[in-house]
């Protein structure tokens, strides 16, 4: 069952001015319950605009976005839409509201008017699931980027949304922070069955996704599972780098080595190459 649906959506920034930017150009897609979707694309491909369209921060110029059947263009729906779709943004510093971590995580539940003991329960639970429970009474500005971003994820989790959208949430992190965040996100998807929309320009982060959507110039350029990594030349032509393991596999395939399955990680590559003669 689909939760988010975009039907032939168009969006232009600074409409009717000289600096008009067409960000999204006729996109139709749907996000299903429990699914892990990666949206990849180069800068300016319109991928971040999609995130803002999905929870009604912006509304389409043309076309329709619905969340759990509710139209984002209707302002009365926005509150319920945002309870269903949580968004984690790029810069962790710009999404913290409070000076104490647990207060920040509590912000969402406080807004939907939960009783205080229930809020505390949810805050603790959310902090535990991102592994930041021990830091709950500290202040966010002492944390590393990856830790801050995990707190931001906890803040979204505390609202128990059905979909979590991560809008380039790992792009400002170091490799370790990125790996931590990815682990948390994967766990949420696998264990809690929460649908995840991962918006990124790192192809490596897309490899765990059930479905990969490649954006270019505001349009869906390519869509599919891991098999899209075989189309290396096409991806590189729109400025995307295929994961190293896939590149190696692709080159081997060109040389006539039989690697039939889609290879995206080192382990898969090793497992495919070692049995070969």
């Amino acid at each position: 069952m689909s939760i988010i649906q975009l039907q032939d959506v168009y969006f232009t920034y600074n409409r009717a001015s000289d600096s008009e930017v067409r960000a999204v150009n006729g996109v139709t897609l749907s996000i299903n319950e429990g699914e892990f979707v990666a949206i990849v694309g180069h800068n300016g491909s319109g991928k971040s605009t999609l995130a803002k369209l999905m929870n009604g921060l912006i509304t389409p110029d043309k076309g329709k976005v619905t969340v759990a059947g509710l139209d984002t263009a209707n302002e009365k729906n926005l509150f319920d839409i945002r309870r269903n779709v949580g968004v984690v943004f790029q810069n962790p510093d710009n999404q913290m509201v409070a000076t104490i971590i647990e207060d920040d995580v509590a912000f969402g539940p406080e807004n939907i008017g939960m009783p205080s003991d229930q809020i505390r329960e949810r805050v603790y639970e959310s902090l535990k699931s991102v592994g930041m429970y021990d830091y709950r009474e500290g202040t966010p500005h002492r944390l590393s980027g990856g830790q801050k971003q995990r707190v931001a994820i906890a803040g979204v989790l505390a609202l128990r949304p059905r979909v979590m959208v991560l809008d380039e949430s790992t792009s400002m992190l170091d490799p370790r922070g990125r790996a931590d965040v990815m682990k948390v996100v994967n766990d949420l998807n696998k264990k809690e069955k929460m649908a995840v929309v991962m918006i990124t320009h790192f192809m490596e982060e897309a490899v765990t996704a059930d479905r990969i959507i490649v954006m270019n110039e505001g349009r869906i350029y390519m869509q599919g599972g891991k098999e899209i990594f075989k189309r290396q030349a096409e991806l590189e032509s729109i400025g995307l780098t295929v994961p190293l393991a896939s590149r190696v596999a692709n080159r081997l395939r060109e040389k006539g080595v039989v690697i039939d399955e889609d290879v995206t990680t080192y382990e898969e590559l090793v497992n495919k190459i070692c049995p070969l003669e």
């Binding site: 803002k52 929870n55 921060l57 509150f79 945002r82 309870r83 949580g86 968004v87 943004f89 810069n91 510093d93 710009n94 999404q95 509201v97 647990e102 207060d103 509590a106 912000f107 969402g108 539940p109 406080e110 807004n111 939907i112 008017g113 939960m114 009783p115 205080s116 809020i119 505390r120 805050v123 803040g155 979204v156 609202l159």
Partner: peptide, 25 residues
């Protein structure tokens, strides 16, 4: 920053004092 923070607050269901409770009373 203010712009991004406003988006983040909106996304977390903020609508001012209306219906808002507090964890720490």
């Amino acid at each position: 920053r203010a712009d991004e923070l406003a988006d983040a607050m909106d996304s977390r269901c903020y609508r001012g004092a209306k219906g808002r409770t507090r964890m720490k009373k």
